[in-house]
Design a protein around this nucleic acid. Structure first.
Lengths: 217, 217, 217, 217
DNA sequence: CATGAATGAGTATTCATTCAT
DNA sequence: GATGAATGAATACTCATTCAT
């Protein structure tokens, strides 16, 4: 209290807002959207119900913002990891590995993005659609470049992007649901090889990229 | 009424039960599990709330039965379609095509199986899990046979099965979410080629199977 | 079925009616009025819901009849036990002992009459009122005679009848509620002595009646 | 409204809580537990259903609190009335008279404690049991002291306590059920005399205590 | 800005009772 | 007479949202 008074009121507000988002993140990921009450979020962020409603108009808005910022963070991380890689196929490989690594380390994040769906109903559909489209489009982008570079033969890259994302998505989802989940990254070599071959990347390149992954890991 | 008098009482009961199931199916698919009230189902099946509860013990039971029978129907259809095909790779191709065809014709069925599980809450995590595992395992089975037959090189077929299912799943899901969905089957050639190549099926075989699909379609 | 056809239809009906009453008795005593569904009674008497409603107009009617006939049986038993006893005080002593003996042997009967109340609400109030009044009046009758005979000094026998019945009632109720109930009859000597003294029966008579009880027990 | 503005918010909350309790008390006493809907309580306390649930977690909790506080109030009143009386027999006499006086003036309170427990269902068996045991034990305590003081001959005071309580209980219950109830206190002299004599209090003491009661009344 | 009391629409489930067959 | 399918009123409890203080 005393310290807080010293800060700019604006900053105090932003901090509170952040605390609410944090609490919401945790609770949504643990109990799901429907089973999370505003009261839980208020308690978790050491605010009151009214406090929450000062910063966010509805429960749905909190969820939406959370989904988007989480996706943003994921996106940023991938972008950074891929930044210096000129080869689109290698970039895709790195992107996939980064995603798996991130989820492996932040199971909660994965739960929010992949499974929290349950209970959120319509609200979630929109947001998940946006999320899936966004990542699938990104993959499509890599593949388009790869086609343009002549690295892989031409193909319907939109469908391929969706298929790649779907494959990745399912691997993560199964891992999340597993009672005794192993290491998510164990699936990486197989998955990467599958994806690369699927778009016609030659075996030598596949081997090279897998080796690169080994080194990094 | 007049017609009903003619039928056996037992049959009338079964028919009512079916009507309830139908109405539930429709409403679940349109509004999702959580947003469907028993009253809606009662109204949709021209029964009363009590009538619904005479035939089903809980709302959850209705949903579960619907999930199971729908999955069963899908499964049976695929099994029949694949019955006479000894080549596992060709069988997989036919299975995928059958699924796409079925969903293309029964968008509602797809919604229930792929999207509406979302919104049903934690209780159904395992039901969805079972469903996904069931179909992924089926694919794994085809691939195992293909490996055993020496048609494709050895690989982690469990991961591959999940990846294939995920890819298929995502294609259908995107189509379901699309505002102006095109023809779901348009994705078939690309998807099939991707999946086949991903496990190392040679280009000649890929071409043959695609041609076979063209003929059938 | 085959046997039943042989009997008079009237008798078959009466038997069914009896079976329903039996089942109701058991279930009411075990689960209470409110927690007993007509379906339970139907199942317990191997009839259908409709069958129950053929013999009784409402659930309440079953309960009422059960209360009354049970009370009647109790009453009859007491009447028989007391029949040859000209001394009203001795008669009262025998009556009390008979009631305790009966309940000690038929805990279920006691539950119905004393406790099943819970859940029956208003319905029970009336019936319990009738029951209590009936037995209290009976005691009042004994006491009136005793006063007339000059065995005990004059007193407000109505109040005394109620008090005696209340005392007896409470002893039984406590016994019914006890987790590890002892022998209900163990309370008899104390209770009888209390009651007798309360209306001014002399110690010699008290001792005689207690001794008589010992013999009979 | 205008008055309320003046008060502390905390107090307003407590007041509302009290209003709910009052309304519940009245309705429970009039219609019984089972036949009282939360909506009735809400209406009676000029609140909303949600308002009731803000102050109490369940309907049962309201009833329990009501039972307990009512019993406590009764207990406290008796304790106060008896405080300066060193003679245990006189104390018991005063206690009985106080209970009768209190109930005579608060018929509703009597209904709640003595009759309305009926209708509350199995859940409350133990609450009623506790209540009865509590008061019976109190009487047993007086009698134990009286025996220790040599005022009355030794006897099974536990049974006697139950019998006394049962007698008192029945008198009140009959009065409550009566269509045209007379004065409850009219029963006092007879009841007291019965109870005292039942444990062997000598006639002179009985006369003295009755006279004391006359004076006080 | 924060609080938390209050609101009230929303929901699954139960069950006595009816009645067509 | 018997059956069991159907009815619909009744009810406790939840929770997003509002708003006076």
């Amino acid at each position: 209290m005393t310290e807080e008074k010293a800060r700019e009121p604006q900053e105090r507000g932003r901090e509170r807002r952040e605390r609410i988002l944090d609490a919401a993140f945790t609770t949504f990921a643990e109990r799901g959207y429907r089973d999370t009450a505003i009261d839980d979020i208020a308690r978790g962020s050491e605010t009151s119900k009214g406090g929450v409603y000062f910063h966010f108009p509805t429960k749905e808005a909190i969820f939406r913002e959370l989904m988007r910022t989480t996706a943003d963070r994921l996106d940023a991380k991938v972008t950074r990891a891929v930044a210096d890689e000129p080869d689109p196929i290698a970039a895709a490989a790195i992107a996939i590995r980064t995603v798996l690594e991130l989820f492996a380390g932040h199971r909660r994040m994965a739960r929010l993005l992949f499974l929290d769906a349950f209970g959120a109903g319509r609200v979630f559909h929109d947001e998940v659609d946006r999320l899936h489209t966004r990542f699938a489009d990104r993959i499509t982008g890599y593949l388009d470049r790869a086609v343009a570079d002549g690295v892989i033969p031409p193909l319907d890259t939109r469908v391929a992007g969706q298929a790649w994302f779907g494959a990745l998505n399912e691997i993560v989802a199964r891992w999340l649901m597993a009672e005794k989940p192993g290491h998510l990254l164990d699936a990486y070599p197989t998955l990467l090889a599958l994806l690369l071959r699927s778009v016609g990347v030659g075996e030598p390149t596949v081997a090279t990229l897998l080796a690169a992954g080994e080194e990094r890991g």
